[in-house]
Simulated scan of single mutants.
Amino acid sequence: MAGLHAVQTALDQSVLNPIEPSSTRWLSMEASVRRLKDTFVSVLISLEREGEERGDAKAIGLFHLMSTYRFISTMLLLCDLLPHVSNLSKALQASDFEHSLVKPLVSSTVSTLRQLKTVDGENLRSLPDLLDTLEKSDVTVKQRADDHDFFTEHVKGKYIDRLMSNIEQRFPSEDVGLLSHFAIFDPHRMQVNQTADYGQEEVKSLSEHFLQKPDQPNVTADAVNEWTNFRNFAKDSVLKQPDLKAQSIIDLLCTKSVAQHAFPHLSKLAKIYRVLPCHTADAERTFSQLKIIKTVPRNRLNQASLDGLIRIAVDGPPVHEFDYQSTVQRWAQKKNRRLCRK
């Protein structure tokens, strides 16, 4: 690492360390590839120097691999592709993610990848400049006559095809389309769309998929009728609230007993929407907080204290928004406490 830092300093570059990708956190791949691209010239020079001066076999092998046209072009291709896939993954992991957005997000990502198959991205277009920089730095890039055609046909094209296929298999169009139907519960859409048939086809599709049973043939028709009544109910109640939120209608159908009795089928659909497992990021965040809170020195935390601390860390307000004064006052008023006077 010291040799890399010395080369970066000599080249008047920022002193940056390589980022090792994690096998369990695949999003780290983007940061790793980006860092390699940003430090690529200094890394190659450092590897070549280590191989020549110290006879380091690993450094020699890495230099021969990384100084090829195919490796460099593949690295730049990943710099163009990975941000789009990473952004899709991050959007799906948001704690307040709306299921209705799955379809447009997946569709736009696949369309962007398909476009990058025919039109080089910004990083891949910079390949000639990077090769020129390496040549000026006395780094010889090994290139065969057919490398460009081989990369275009057998690396770039096939990799993007497999990537798009993998995304489409993970998000089948019929399932993604069904999730998008839940958008009818968005109160802002209900305010804008006042047509008489708004949401009827979506409720019908959702009911047929989630609620319809052989011994209850009228469930779908009942749900559609409920929807007509519920729209009038929401217009006179929920939609008039000043602090209207995207989840207001879902919360009403899930938590208010009056709404659950008046609209039983829509209430079931709302509860199904609440528990649809779009991602496991929230559970993973909780386990991460558990590791931070229950450390080896704090191994005697009882279950109640641990549960409270995790709830505060996961669901609590930001530190700068918490009202410490009122909390201390409430705590002091719960019972008479002995004050330590000195």
Rank of each mutant, 00 (worst) to 15 (best):
V155L: 09
I160K: 03
K117Y: 00
A145P: 03
D147E: 00
D129Q: 13
A145Y: 10
L178K: 08
R170H: 09
E208A: 08
S207A: 15
T152A: 11
F182C: 10
F182M: 04
R170D: 06
L163N: 06
L116W: 01
F185D: 09
V155H: 12
S126A: 12
H148E: 13
D120T: 04
H154Y: 14
N166I: 00
M164L: 02
V139A: 09
K136A: 14
E168R: 05
F171E: 11
D175R: 06
F185Y: 13
E174D: 15
M190Y: 05
H188P: 01
K117L: 09
S108W: 00
H209N: 05
I184V: 15
T118Y: 03
E208V: 05
G199R: 01
E208I: 02
K156C: 05
E135L: 07
L211R: 02
T118C: 04
L163M: 15
E153N: 11
P172E: 06
S205P: 00
G177W: 02
V139N: 02
Q200I: 11
Y198H: 10
D197C: 00
V139Q: 02
T118A: 07
Q191T: 10
G177R: 07
D129H: 09
G121K: 05
E153L: 10
S165N: 12
P128R: 08
E174P: 05
E174K: 14
V192N: 03
L134H: 06
Y198I: 01
Q191K: 15
Y198S: 06
G177S: 15
A196H: 04
F150E: 14
D120C: 07
R189W: 06
L206S: 05
T109N: 07
H148S: 11
A183H: 04
F210V: 03
V106S: 07
L163C: 15
D146I: 12
K204T: 00
T109V: 14
D161M: 03
D138H: 13
V176M: 13
T195E: 15
S165Y: 03
N193H: 13
F151L: 08
P128K: 07
E202N: 08
K156F: 01
D132R: 11
L134M: 14
D197T: 01
D129L: 13
K142F: 06
L116Y: 07
V176R: 10
D132S: 12
Q212K: 14
F185N: 07
L206R: 04
R189T: 11
Y159W: 07
D146K: 09
I184P: 09
Y159F: 15
L124T: 01
P172S: 08
L211Y: 01
K213D: 06
T109K: 02
R144W: 01
P172L: 11
Q200R: 04
